[in-house]
């Protein structure tokens, strides 16, 4: 399988995934009990007013027509209007996407920067103090919910370190440093569990690589142990980790939703929970779609990365 075929296959797959997500989201949201028109008007209303609103919202149409209409609008980037506020959904989402994506991105970076080197050290120093220490920390990472890490951070850091805020979000255009400080703790809360997962994967992957014949060959060539490890081992060890790193991004995205609430940050998570409570269908749809879209996009990037580090895909042929 050549590079082009592989990428094409992955891209088609992503499109199907998105289509599936869109359909599921539509079906799921429409099966939420409770009539949004009634909810909007609240209390006692006469049937005529209710029907009028339902017609206005298109809720009286057959479901499949609603679906295709929605799909067509979706393709033009129109996610509809919020039932509550009447504002365009896309606008509301974009307004609050900043903090969520910032936290997710920084959380990911923190996880990668800590987990990959630690995993390598742990594998190289297997059964030594460095290994026990880092596997223990990683174990705690995968055993705590992100939002609770957030709560502990608020209690420990928030009370003692004044320069790091524990509430709210500062947009990046108010300065890099305030922005960075406002997302530091939430990002850490989100990144720690992800880092724990990555570190454990990196360790076991590197342990397998260390036993490979080509590593012995590299030593038999007279290369220094650092060269053997980083020139011959690293890339091989990263190949399986990269694939799983994409899939476990779900941990980061899932974590952000709850962590935002801990830190009182108005992001996608709060928007989503709020809109579920208010049965604001278009807003729920839009938010879920955006998060799913980010996830699919991130996995496409991971796929590209994977093809870059795995020559078996880049240069097909062989077995």
């Amino acid at each position: 399988m050549g590079l082009r075929e592989y990428l094409l296959k992955r891209l088609v797959h992503s499109v199907f995934v998105m289509l599936f997500v869109v359909t599921v989201v539509f079906a799921a949201v429409r099966s939420i009990p409770g009539d949004p028109a009634r909810l909007m008007l609240g209390g006692d209303v006469d049937t005529a007013t209710l029907e009028a609103l339902r017609a206005e919202l298109g809720l009286n149409q057959p479901l499949y027509i609603q679906y295709f209409r929605w799909l067509r609008r979706l393709l033009t980037g129109d996610l509809g209007e919020s039932i509550r506020t009447g504002e365009p959904v896309l606008g509301s989402i974009v307004q609050v996407a900043g903090p969520t994506l910032s936290i997710a991105a920084l959380g990911m970076v923190i996880a990668l920067v800590i987990a990959i080197p630690t995993g390598i050290i742990s594998a190289v120093k297997r059964y030594e103090i460095e290994d026990y220490l880092s596997t223990t920390i990683a174990f705690f990472g995968i055993s705590m919910p992100a939002f609770w890490i957030g709560i502990v951070l608020v209690l420990v850091i928030g009370v003692n370190v004044e320069s790091i805020p524990t509430f709210g979000y500062t947009p990046i255009d108010e300065g890099i440093s305030p922005w960075f400080r406002s997302i530091l703790l939430p990002s850490f809360a989100v990144g720690f569990p992800y880092g724990g997962i990555l570190m454990r994967m990196m360790r076991s992957s590197m342990l397998e690589v260390l036993n490979e014949d080509y590593m012995r060959t590299a030593r038999a060539k007279g290369l220094s142990s650092n060269l053997v490890l980083f020139k011959h081992g690293l890339q091989n060890a990263l190949i399986p980790v990269v694939t799983l790193a994409g899939i476990f991004l779900a941990v980061v995205l899932g974590g952000v939703v709850a962590v935002e609430i801990v830190f009182g940050i108005r992001g996608l998570g709060r928007l989503l929970i709020g809109s579920i409570n208010r049965r604001d269908f278009p807003l729920i749809q839009g938010t879920v779609l955006l998060i799913a879209f980010v996830f699919v996009l991130a996995n496409i990037v991971v796929d590209l990365l994977y093809t870059m580090i795995n020559p078996r895909i880049k240069y097909g042929g062989g077995d």
Binding site: S14, F16, V17, F20, V21, V24, V25, A28, V29, S31, I32, P33, I247, L249, A250, L253, G254, V257, L272, I273, I276, I284, V288, I291, A292, F295, V296, N299
Partner: peptide, 17 residues
């Protein structure tokens, strides 16, 4: 396809349904 879907969204959607 399920693999390509963050679990929390699945859970949130199902619970809200």
């Amino acid at each position: 396809v399920m693999w390509a879907f963050p679990w929390l969204l699945i859970a949130i959607m199902l619970v809200s349904i």
